[in-house]
Design a protein around this nucleic acid. Structure first.
Lengths: 171, 171
DNA sequence: ATGGATGCAAAGCGTTTGCATACAG
DNA sequence: CTGTATGCAAACGCTTTGCATCCAT
């Protein structure tokens, strides 16, 4: 992909809504944008937070004020397709569940994962991609992306224990 | 950890066998090095290859010439402990299974994961850890390690398709 | 001796799937 | 209309666990 193509893509990304982007993807595959799928996409892109399948299921499985309810099966099926469509991506595993995040309209970044509180903290660093591009090229590997989890203790958990932290530790 | 401590660790690593290292770990925890555990460690460290739980289970579950057979449950229980002991670590997920590799007596490295053939290819690059150390420090994050998967197409799969590749592609 | 470890089978748990029914295009 | 999609519940596949028995220390 050349530079102007990249620019087109970027412009596209910030212009088209997630739902529209998904509709386009579905269209090219002879698939349909159903109410259920739209409900799921709206729910997921309502805010930029990490999430797992079960969170979405519990939010959409019980009757809702606006969009109708969506079954567990449909949530799973739709998450897979959203991933194929490049709207979301798996960033980590936590509690035996895949953790997703937005991969559309959001800049490339990686994560710290705290071993104490399990919190995911995003960080951006362009050097990493640059190094990876170079290393991949050296190995004749055609890189399409990467997944990087940096494990350790976050600043909050590293601080001298307070009442609040103690409590959490004792669970 | 200072330089001489690092050197001690390295010397230690190449001197003590995986089984001994495991015995040490178990000892400090009031646990025992049983025949089953030793069999598993020997099997795993017989060669430096990536592996998943099921591979070990199938190799040790059926009666064996030397070491006795080991149950599925014990393999799983022991793999967890080997991970805690720092002898092995999870490097990826493939086919819904955790993929492990030796984390003892082997230098730090990361992996390319081919999206076509699923092959894991190791690569070493010291810049990455260096960058991560720095970024972690900037964020007040106390880094203990990282897991990096670089996704894309490996050189073999990227080559112009041969008869052999075509066949594989059509599966 | 005796508290930890094993084996077996059953349970767990996230995820997938078969099938009858309900829609989007 | 017609091929897709949904919902439900059952099936799946990896992993964990309860319990009676066994064994390393």
């Amino acid at each position: 992909m050349n530079d102007s193509a990249v620019k087109d893509l970027e412009r596209h990304e910030v212009t088209v809504s997630p739902v529209e982007k998904f509709r386009e993807y579905l269209g090219t595959r002879g698939k349909r944008l159903t109410q259920e799928r739209e409900t799921i996409v709206r729910e997921i892109f309502a805010e930029h937070e990490h999430f797992d399948s079960d969170q979405i299921v519990s939010r959409l499985t019980q009757p809702r004020r606006d969009g109708g309810r969506v079954s567990r099966a449909t949530v799973y099926r739709t998450l897979s397709q959203l991933e194929e469509a490049g709207l979301i991506r798996k960033v980590a595993r936590s509690n035996d569940r895949e953790v997703y995040e937005h991969d559309y309209g959001y800049p490339q970044h990686d994560h710290f994962i705290c071993e104490k509180c399990q919190e995911l903290v995003e960080f951006r660093n362009d050097e990493i991609s640059a190094v990876l591009e170079r290393v991949a090229a050296e190995h004749g590997f055609r890189m399409s992306g990467h997944r990087l989890e940096v494990h350790g203790i976050c600043s909050a958990c590293a601080k001298p224990p307070t009442r609040r932290h103690r409590k959490l530790d004792m669970i």
